[in-house]
């Protein structure tokens, strides 16, 4: 839209100006003392109950530890075992394909729902609660429901597909091909409420006058979203994407309940953490379990670095 072009430039200039005044950058001295005081309570808890445990697993990953007898040093042996286990690579692939599907879909849908619910419409409180419901519904009961939805003999989806004349509908949880899509649908359903609530909060920092000014300048809804809303909420989006990516890579509970603890058929829905859980709590092989955790770390770390590098192109900080 031609007439709007100058205004967009104006907005971008104004935001660029703000961006250049990043916190503290105009000051020469650092805030070291204040930083220590502000960080101390958080750091103590972080150190004792997060960092120690995490470092512990790193050390354990180089040992053989069956929980009972003292750990014995193995060096890189556990990592070599993992690399040589076809099941490990299968769960890496499963987890990655789950993540690649669930993160973009649930983030986009969550954002759409948040945009819809950010309007002052009658009944929004009820709708906001309803869309959050999947995220809080107790997993065991949600899984029972979804097992029925996916059932090939009597389920909701396949009955409907039969009605439409589909003669051979997917067997969902009873097919090594369709089990993962079923898990993805379940995952998206559950995740929407989470990204929605974060986006709702994020949208509040988009100044209404800015949107109104854009409207006056003739921007349509999409242009307003592209040039104002999306840049303003990009730190929230980054947060949602990173947390959802980590959460998806750590998928366990949902796959466990949906497949009655079997991750089937034939490990088609098994995940990295499912694999890790089996090692830790069934085989009592904490060394390999910890090595799996650190393999997960390396994978997510790489994914996060890619996201953080990519963010320079789309995330704008105030």
């Amino acid at each position: 839209m031609r007439p709007f072009a100058p205004s967009i430039e104006r907005l971008q200039v104004s935001m660029a100006r703000r961006r250049s005044s990043r916190p503290g950058e105009h000051r020469k001295r650092g805030d070291g003392r204040a930083a220590i005081l502000f960080l101390l309570p958080d750091f103590v808890g972080f150190f004792v109950f997060t960092l120690l445990g995490v470092i512990g697993t790193l050390v354990i990953s180089f040992t053989h530890w069956d929980l009972v007898r003292a750990p014995t040093w193995l060096g890189l042996e556990n990592y070599r075992t993992l690399a040589g286990d076809p099941l490990f690579w299968q769960v890496v692939k499963n987890t990655a394909s789950y993540t690649v599907a669930v993160v973009p879909i649930s983030t986009a849908l969550g954002l759409l729902v948040a945009l819809g619910l950010n309007r002052r419409l009658p009944g929004t409180v009820v709708l906001r609660t309803a869309y959050f419901a999947p995220f809080i519904t107790t997993l065991a009961s949600a899984a029972l429901m979804w097992q029925w939805i996916f059932d090939p003999n009597r389920g909701l989806i396949d009955s409907y597909l039969y009605m439409l004349g589909v003669s051979n509908p997917p067997a969902w949880l009873n097919s090594s091909v369709w089990a993962m899509p079923a898990l993805i649908i379940f995952g998206v359903w559950r995740q929407i409420g989470f990204s929605m609530v974060l986006f709702l909060a994020g949208l509040q920092s988009v100044p209404r006058p800015l949107l109104e000014a854009a409207t006056v300048d003739g921007a349509n809804a999409w242009q307003r979203f592209r040039s104002v809303t999306f840049p303003m909420i990009s730190p929230t989006t980054l947060f949602v994407v990173i947390i959802s990516t980590i959460g998806s890579f750590q998928l366990f509970d949902q796959a466990f309940v949906l497949t009655s603890g079997r991750f089937g058929p034939d490990n088609a829905t098994n995940t990295l953490v499912g694999y890790l859980y089996q090692k830790a709590f069934v085989d009592l092989n904490m060394g390999e379990a910890s090595a799996t955790a650190w393999a997960l770390f390396i994978i997510i770390f790489a994914a996060t670095i890619i996201q953080l590098v990519a963010q320079r192109r789309w995330v704008h900080y105030e």
């Binding site: 997060t50 445990g53 995490v54 512990g56 697993t57 980590i246 366990f252 953490v273 830790a280 709590f281």
Partner: peptide, 14 residues
């Protein structure tokens, strides 16, 4: 951020 990646199932016992 890095510690977020390590799943709680494996830090549970430590």
């Amino acid at each position: 951020l890095g510690t977020l990646i390590i799943p709680s199932q494996v830090t549970l016992i430590p």
